[in-house]
Design a protein around this nucleic acid. Structure first.
Length: 317
DNA sequence: AAATCGTGGTC
DNA sequence: TGACCAAGATT
């Protein structure tokens, strides 16, 4: 994620033809995503990257169009009503991202003259911006050289170079080193490499059902050459539970509030948060309380709740 | 550093 | 059907 100056004498890892194959495949097969279009500014790219954190492209696309049309610049979002921001976020999931994006917009206005900064340090200091998003903004918004390591890139490099079905549960130093070594020295080429590998992971080298016959690097894929061995970490990956969890309960509460103008009775929210799959009697109250402390819900009057209004802004504990 | 945080589609 | 997955960040 550092905006790596091309190291003097930088030599890409020795995977013959890999770059050329990916770049030419991308030139042919890239999706026409709205945030990739030439007119998109850095703010538009940043918005897309935050929306894309754990949310599939197909669901982000319409939300991004509406969002950027309504709040085209950071200053516009900074001035918006948080309740409207949460409604516009719709059901992208993880609604804290919406509040963080607004907090980010306010930071940009307050400390960056309303512009998206260009350094890793400044980007990482923004709410909701972590290592992936900072690198992605440098690469795709500023056309700079950065190590973009998302779940797609990790999977592609894991297979093609390391010969494993799926990467380890958490990012390793070795993966970062490998990605940095593979990054082309030329900035513009590095940008196309980054987006090309990501796109390859999304369209061909997919987690579930890889489309190997369509793969431009099939003949040099270490995983395929090894006979596509199964996932070493199979069974060790714990999938996140959903039914009966606080997250499901919180989701119910927010859905109720999103659909309602004005305030909602606490009893109604706790009823919405009552899950048949959960035997925990105080889960509804706990869900509501946690939403309050996250700033996603506001208590307007005793036991009367609503989506947050402009005023305090986003102030998590 | 493991847990937490939504939502919906797929096989 | 249910487990798995999706351009992660935060604490």
């Amino acid at each position: 994620m550092p905006r790596l100056p091309a190291p003097p004498g930088h030599v890409p890892a020795d995977v013959p033809g890999l770059h050329a194959a990916v770049l030419s495949w991308y030139a042919e097969h890239a999706r026409d995503l709205p945030w990739r279009r030439p007119g998109t500014d850095a703010w538009g790219v940043l918005v897309s990257e935050v929306m894309l954190q754990q949310t599939p492209v197909v669901r982000v696309e319409p939300a991004w169009r509406a969002w950027t049309a309504r709040w085209p610049r950071p200053a516009d979002l900074a001035d918006a009503d948080p309740a409207e921001v949460l409604r516009a976020w719709d059901r992208l999931g993880y609604p804290r991202r919406a509040l963080r994006l607004q907090a980010c917009a306010r930071e940009l206005v307050a400390r960056h003259a309303g512009e998206v900064p260009q350094t890793t340090e400044e980007l990482l200091a923004l709410p909701g911006v972590g290592p992936y998003t900072a690198a992605a903004v440098i690469a795709f918004a500023h056309r700079g050289r950065a190590v973009v390591l998302d779940t797609n890139v990790r999977r592609v490099l894991g297979r093609v170079v390391q010969g494993v079905a799926l990467p380890a549960p958490s990012l390793t130093r070795a993966e970062h080193t490998l990605a940095a070594e593979l990054l082309p020295a030329d900035p513009e080429r590095s940008v196309r490499w980054n987006v090309g590998v990501m796109e390859l992971g999304a369209l061909v080298c997919r987690a579930r059902a890889p489309r190997c016959p369509s793969c431009p690097v099939l003949d040099r894929c270490a995983w395929t050459l090894a006979g596509r061995p199964p996932d070493e970490h199979a069974g060790r990956r714990r999938t996140q539970p959903w039914h009966g969890t606080d997250r499901q309960a919180r989701g119910r509460v927010l859905a109720e509030l999103r659909a309602t103008e004005g305030t909602v009775d606490g009893a109604r929210l706790r009823r919405a948060a009552t899950l048949s799959a959960s035997g925990d009697p105080h889960q509804p109250a706990r869900a509501l309380a946690s939403l309050l402390s996250d700033g996603l819900v506001e208590e307007h009057a005793p036991d009367r709740f609503r989506l947050p209004r402009s005023g305090e802004g986003y102030c998590p504990a």
